[in-house]
Amino acid sequence: MNGIDGQGGFEKLVVMSDAGEQREREAAKLTRHDGLGGLEMLAARYRDHAYPLHTHPTWVFGVVVAGVEKLRIGRHQHLAPAGSIIIVNPEEPHDGEKGAPAGWAYRTCYPDAALMAEIAGDMELTGLPMFREGIVQAPDLARAFVRAHRLAGQALEQEAAMLVVLSELAGRFGDGKPRDRASDGGETARRFRLCRELIAEDLSAGFDLAHLAAAAGVTRFQVIRDFHRAAGMTPGQYLRDRRIRAASALIRTDMPLAEIAAATGFADQSHLTRVFKAIKGVSPGAWRAAA
C-alpha cells in the first residue's frame, strides 16, 4: 500500500481481528498528546471496517495517506483519495468506509473547543473556526499534517508542528480570516533570548511550548514565530541542536556516554547515539575516537 505517508503502510498496532488475513490488512493506533490538551490522534489502515453514521463533540481533521475512503459528511457524499484532507465540524454526522477494494489508510486528530479557541484567539478570529467543505485539497498542508502526526516521541516538535498545521487549516479553510501581523522588531529578539537562556540553564529539563511561553510572557504560537524569525528553526529543532552541541563537548572528555545522555536531555545512551549520528554522520564513539 503506497501513499503520501512514504513508508508503504502503518505500524502493526491494534489488530482489528484475530484472523491472520485480517491482521495483514487492518490496524489502528490511538495516541494522546498531553501538551495539546490530550489531543487524540489516530493512525489506521482499514479494508473491511465501516463506520456507521456518528458525531463527535470535537473537530475532526484527517489526511488519507493511501487508498480511497468513501464517506458522508453532513448531507454530502464524498470520495477521498490519497492526499485528501478531511474536515468535520463538531456534532456533524459522518460515516466512513472503503472507496476502493483495497480500502484506505489515514491519520486523523480530534481537537476540542479549548484547543480551537486558543488557535482562534491567536488568529484574532471573532469565534471558533467552522468549515464549509468536508474534503479539501492542499498538498502542502496534507504533507505537513502527516509529518506532524508522525512525530510521536518528539513531544515539543510534534506540539509545535500540529499547532502550526491546525492554524493553517483554520486560516485557509475556516470561516474567519487571520489578521496580518506587523513585525515587532526587537521584541522578537528579546523574547527569543529569554527562551534561549531558559533552555541553556538545564538541557536535561523537559520543555514544552507552555513552559517557554510562560518564560517569554507570550502565547505558544508566538514562541513558534519567534524561534522561526530569530533562529530559523522550530523550538524542538533548536532544543535538539543545543543538546547535541553540549553532548559533543562532553564526548571529548572521559565522561561515560550514558551520563552524557542524561546530562543533555536524551532518554538514554541509545537515544543520544541515534540523534548524534543523524546530525554528525558518525556515532558518539567514533566522534570521541577522532577527537
Score class of each variant (00 low, 15 high):
87 I>V: 09
54 H>K: 03
73 I>E: 08
67 G>A: 01
73 I>F: 06
77 Q>G: 07
54 H>G: 01
59 W>F: 11
46 Y>S: 04
73 I>G: 08
83 G>M: 00
48 D>S: 14
70 K>F: 08
51 Y>M: 13
81 P>S: 06
69 E>G: 07
59 W>I: 05
58 T>H: 14
48 D>Q: 13
45 R>Y: 11
51 Y>C: 09
67 G>W: 01
51 Y>A: 15
51 Y>D: 15
82 A>H: 08
66 A>S: 13
47 R>G: 09
74 G>K: 03
80 A>N: 00
87 I>A: 01
81 P>C: 04
68 V>H: 03
47 R>P: 08
84 S>W: 10
56 H>K: 02
64 V>T: 02
49 H>G: 10
69 E>C: 07
45 R>S: 15
62 G>W: 06
49 H>A: 13
86 I>S: 07
80 A>M: 02
78 H>K: 08
84 S>F: 10
71 L>P: 04
84 S>V: 04
49 H>T: 12
60 V>D: 06
55 T>D: 09
85 I>Y: 05
50 A>E: 14
71 L>S: 11
86 I>M: 10
74 G>I: 04
87 I>P: 00
54 H>M: 03
60 V>R: 12
51 Y>Q: 13
53 L>M: 14
73 I>P: 04
58 T>E: 15
76 H>L: 10
45 R>K: 14
55 T>C: 12
85 I>M: 13
76 H>V: 14
68 V>K: 01
49 H>L: 11
48 D>G: 11
55 T>I: 15
67 G>H: 03
74 G>L: 04
